[in-house]
């Protein structure tokens, strides 16, 4: 789990937390392939790793696309 505070482009501060659950993840690579900002990379063990937290815009595409309920993105506006 990664928590960060983003100085968003609008000037507002947003809290974004990306939760990855290794017990549910099947290493299909969908989140890594489809994140528009390239937030994830594939780790040595095949699991996704949150590599560029500051790029996350909170679009939730990884959440919607994950077939295994392994990704959740919390965005406090």
């Amino acid at each position: 789990m990664v928590i960060l505070i983003l100085p968003a482009k609008t000037g507002k501060q947003r809290h974004i937390a990306i939760h990855l659950d290794h017990n549910l993840c099947k290493r299909c690579g969908i989140c890594v392939a489809f994140c528009p900002q390239g937030v994830f990379v594939t780790g040595d063990d095949g699991y996704p790793v949150v590599a560029a937290t500051e790029k996350c815009t909170g679009c939730q595409l990884c959440f919607y696309r994950c077939p295994d309920f392994a990704v959740e993105v919390e965005v406090d506006k």
Partner: peptide, 14 residues
């Protein structure tokens, strides 16, 4: 009951 039985990358979970 998770993880479900579908294969990695199967769309049924989506």
């Amino acid at each position: 009951r998770l993880p479900h039985l579908w294969c990695a990358g199967c769309g049924h979970g989506v």
